[in-house]
Design a protein around this nucleic acid. Structure first.
Ligand SMILES: [Mn+2]
Ligand SMILES: [Mn+2]
Ligand SMILES: [Mn+2]
Ligand SMILES: [Mn+2]
Lengths: 227, 227
DNA sequence: ACAAATTTTTAGATTTGTCTAAAAATAATA
DNA sequence: TATTATTTTTAGACAAATCTAAAAATTTGT
């Protein structure tokens, strides 16, 4: 219900977005150092920015206690994520980019300021629910449609699922998936799970494929109940 | 043939673009004040920036003599204009914006850095030659396809032409054109030209329409020879 | 050509976001 | 608990882009 638009710099927006993502991991408050690492900057710069965001009531901050997003800060962060993911979807679906090429461009596009633009883009794309990496695209009100998904590494022999997302969306990992023909939507059955190193033998595309635990830890499947 | 990419700030890019546009009017060099007015800033700020651009060999500058773009500066300016106009075309043709709503958004989008993005956008749009205001979109090599066009005010009674562009693309003027059903592509015949104030009576859409000299000075027609 | 008006440049200050180095607070360990 | 190690904050500096006020150069008008 906040009609008043707050002037946000590119830097402030990126901080809010990083805090949002880190809150998933550090529920009791995001530490200065964690944020510094995520933002690839120095802790002192983070402290400066946190003070500024706190001044604007976008985060709750007490010295030495880490930060959490305020309600307002959270809703701004969600809108930036919405823009990021809509642009990623556009780049892949309309401009024919590969899923490993879109992140850096979306990092720029997410800061374009125009509500009308994002509303019209959303309509043009026919209101997509997930970005090219399987991440949910929040709607205009900031609601995430969350799909049931589990990390592949946690599945057991005989389990089956559909690939619905990736945890690591680095170009290197996405290219690895491409080389192994692993795509969103593919049906995967776990044939074997090696106790020694956690590697897995999968059946996909009617072929067998072995992947490491590291890889399995970065792929999300939607479980299929086999009756 | 310049493979080396120069790091350009948003501000530098906007200066180059403004100099490019002003060079049309001030062929012997763009004055500090003209640039200050165009950029809506102070002359002293302009001097500072000109020195910086000159340092980078993007403009030729001698104190008190005004600036001209260097070859490199010109080609960067053209690429920014290309981006601006391609995005405007996208916004109107794909996202369904009206032609009076796109300029400010394109002002932001033109600074997104990715050659691949603009190449793919161009392809997606099927290599458009003109933006929604009739201005030419330079190709990847920076070549403008220039269409024959003349200011409506310079036409005479009996002359005929097709509306191909606007000189003023302010929202106010574009909305005036909308209200009077004047669109690109429309065929226009000059029925009368009032000597007293330069106003014109036009035939368009099989109806008569009177427009002021001010308006006629901001509309481009491609002349049709009547044999 | 000379004084007046205008344009342009310089000098110095400000804001934003960053940095390094040092101090202060907190956490870990013996 | 006392000492050490780590984290976080402060203090001070810097680069980019802007500003105001004043000085210098150029142009205009008589
Ligand atoms: Mn991304
Ligand atoms: Mn993504
Ligand atoms: Mn425009
Ligand atoms: Mn235009």
């Amino acid at each position: 219900m906040c009609i008043i638009k707050i002037e946000m710099t590119l830097s402030e927006e990126n901080y809010l977005k990083s805090i949002f993502h880190l809150e998933k991991k550090y529920a009791r408050g995001v530490s200065t150092n964690a944020l510094a690492e995520e933002m690839e900057t120095k802790a002192s710069s983070v402290t400066d920015m946190i003070k500024k965001l706190s001044e604007k009531n976008l985060v709750n901050y007490k010295k030495y206690q880490g930060v959490k997003l305020s309600e307002k800060g959270n809703s701004i962060a969600v809108q930036i994520i919405r823009k990021h993911r809509l642009w990623e979807y556009f780049l892949v679906e309309k401009l024919d980019f590969n899923w490993d090429e879109v992140h850096d461009i979306a990092e720029q596009l997410e800061h374009i300021k125009s509500d009308e633009l994002i509303a019209k883009l959303d309509k043009f794309l026919d209101y997509p629910k997930r970005d090219p990496h399987g991440d949910p695209i929040p709607d205009a009100e900031g609601n995430f449609a969350n799909l049931e998904k589990k990390i592949l590494a946690e599945f057991n022999e005989g389990d089956q699922g559909i690939c619905v997302g990736v945890k690591d969306s680095s170009a290197a990992f996405l290219q690895y998936l491409d080389r192994n023909k692993i795509k969103l939507g593919k049906s995967i059955t776990i044939l074997e799970k090696e106790q020694f190193d956690g590697s897995m033998i999968l059946k996909m595309n009617n072929k067998e494929l072995t992947i490491s635990k590291v890889a399995a830890n970065n792929i999300y499947l939607k479980p299929i109940s086999l009756e």
